[in-house]
Design a protein around this nucleic acid. Structure first.
Length: 498
RNA sequence: CGGGGCGUAGCGCAGUCUGGUAGCGCGUCGGUUUUGGGAACCGAAAGCCGCAGGUUCGAAUCCUGCCGCCCCGACCA
């Protein structure tokens, strides 16, 4: 636990440094986010910087003071209490504004890292024709987890639990030569699996948002390079989110080989027991430059991360664990699976006839892999790994707002003006503050901020303003410092590399 | 799918055993006093008591059926 905390702190620093020189990318991200918020009709007017600040008096944030009866684990409880989600049916949720902002952050980071690794974003439909699944043989194999639908013409349809068939269909119709390889296609789309017993809120819902990607290569060596691209891209993705996700050897089933890994975030409420060499927890990519086109370079990183023992109970080998890991580093914890990568060869390309002509003119089935990230699940997992008894503690990369501004005396001319000024300056810096401008007591505002977990809070009151200072408080450590309003803004901007 | 539990105001719950027309706390609204960590007092609004049928003079309460939600297990991730 203590180690985890320290690591998170160090990682936040590293990421801050890495982001700083990357101002162009940061602006691009902000701009894209802003443009999208416009379409989605957020209340605040667009700012020149593209940032979307918010006043609490205009924000739909239904907080619950009491514990919802149906929620058992911290993330589910806190997501309901913090007004992030609301259940529509068992395992199906509406994402309210606060939760939706976090979900969008997760999505954004996934998109950016997929692009950096060379994947192409697409968007496949949620509803799929059953015939495609009959072709792969999975229509009958999938069982009652698959939601089957019939349209008005009595055609069998289904709400997709995954997309291998569709993507292979797209691919086989468009690609016929080895010259068109490799390709990596992915999308982020809602899936539905009719779980017998949904639970733990978005951690195990029936409807869930998932990034699933598919690689197409001419031979096994090329396919393993694609696999390695994903493994490293996933390391970057989770690290950027401020999360410690460990790749663990996964079961490859009948296909065999070493090329399947699950990424697990360590948390006491995790669904799997995990066994690992604590050395893997000290690894970090940091701001290392990565050439995704270098086979040897990627393989070296993959080796470094997959060499230490790390397995779930499914693949755990007690004898090997004891012989390979020094006793002091043997760690047994629980983990939440947030990613899964899999090289499966010609399992789908063969039956679906996805073939290309090789250099020698012979038709060969393409070598494929599939790669998933549980986008909506990550929101819950991030909370499981980052909360205390007062509420959520967002990593900077995922937080729905960069900082909260608490006006301790709403209506006081000086306090109001100081808050407005801080709000404007943070916004001008490209950040998105949440200003609690409600006419509420201090305690109520503090409790709300603690619950929703913004990592930084600027507290403004007449008492401090008399001596020209406001208070900047870290949600994670609880440490406060008194600064001039200008210095507080500068400090928050620096934390976010702005 | 097997076992268990629960549906009563926005949230958390009592009332059901023993039938007599609905209550508490929080929240909400109005007022007064407060105001640097979920304030105090006064007043108010808000319920097809999950749905349908039955028994009864009378049903939140008893009976039958259905629906929904939660927990344990199996499953899945």
């Amino acid at each position: 636990m203590h180690r985890g905390r320290r690591n998170r702190g160090r990682r936040a620093n590293r990421l801050g440094k890495r982001d700083a020189p990357n101002a162009a990318a940061a602006r691009l991200r902000t701009a894209r986010c802003g443009a999208r918020a416009d379409l989605l009709g957020d209340a605040a007017p667009p700012q020149p910087s593209g940032a979307r600040p918010m006043r609490l008096t205009r924000f739909f944030l239904p907080l619950l003071k009491e514990q919802p009866a149906e929620a058992q684990i911290a993330s589910h409880r806190l997501m309901l209490r913090a007004g992030m989600i609301r259940q529509a049916a068992s395992g199906i949720y509406t994402w309210l504004p606060l939760g939706y902002r976090v979900l969008r952050n997760v999505e954004r980071i996934v998109h950016e890292e997929q692009a950096a690794m060379g994947a192409n974003a697409v968007l496949m439909p949620t509803i799929q024709p059953a015939d495609l699944w009959r072709e792969s043989g999975r229509y009958d194999a999938y069982g009652p987890e698959m939601l089957r639908i019939r349209d008005r013409h009595d055609r069998d349809m289904l709400y997709g639990p995954t997309n291998e068939e569709l993507i292979t269909d797209v691919f086989r119709g468009a690609v016929s030569s080895y010259r068109d390889l490799p390709r990596i296609l992915y999308h982020i789309q809602w899936k539905f699996r009719d779980e017998v017993r949904p639970r733990f809120g978005v951690m195990r819902g029936r409807e869930f948002l998932m990034k699933d990607g598919y690689s197409f290569d001419i031979d096994s060596a090329a396919a393993i390079h694609s696999y390695n691209r994903h493994l490293v891209a996933y390391l970057r993705t989770f690290e950027r989110m401020g999360l410690k996700a460990v790749p663990m050897k996964a079961d490859t089933g009948p296909i065999g080989g070493d090329h399947s890994h699950e990424f697990l975030i360590l948390a006491d409420t995790g669904e799997s027991e995990v066994f690992l060499d604590s050395a893997v927890l000290d690894l970090a990519l940091g701001d290392r430059a990565i050439d995704f086109d270098s086979r040897d370079g990627l393989q070296a990183i993959v080796d470094q991360w997959t060499k230490p023992y790390a397995r779930t109970d499914e693949t755990h080998d007690a004898a090997l664990f004891e012989s390979a890991v020094p006793e002091a580093r043997r760690t047994v914890r629980r983990g939440i699976e947030v990613g899964h990568i899999f090289y499966f060869g010609t399992k789908y390309s063969e039956p679906l006839g996805a073939r290309v002509a090789g250099p020698d003119g012979a038709q060969v089935a393409v070598e494929m892999g599939s790669y998933g990230i549980g986008v909506s699940r990550l929101v819950g997992a991030a909370i499981e790994a980052n909360h205390d008894d007062k509420g959520v503690i967002w990593p900077e990369a995922l937080t729905p707002f960069h900082a909260g501004i608490v006006n301790l005396k709403q209506g006081d001319a000086e306090a109001d003006a100081a808050c407005q000024s801080i709000y404007d300056r943070l916004t001008a810096a490209g950040l998105e503050p949440l200003y609690d401008d409600r006419d509420e007591r201090a305690g109520t505002k503090f409790a709300a901020m603690d619950l929703i977990g913004l990592p930084w809070r600027v507290t403004v009151g007449p008492r401090g303003l008399k001596s020209g200072v406001v208070e900047l408080t870290s949600r994670r450590t609880g440490e406060s410092q008194e600064l001039t309003p200008e210095a507080a803004v500068a400090k928050v901007a620096a934390i976010y590399g702005r």
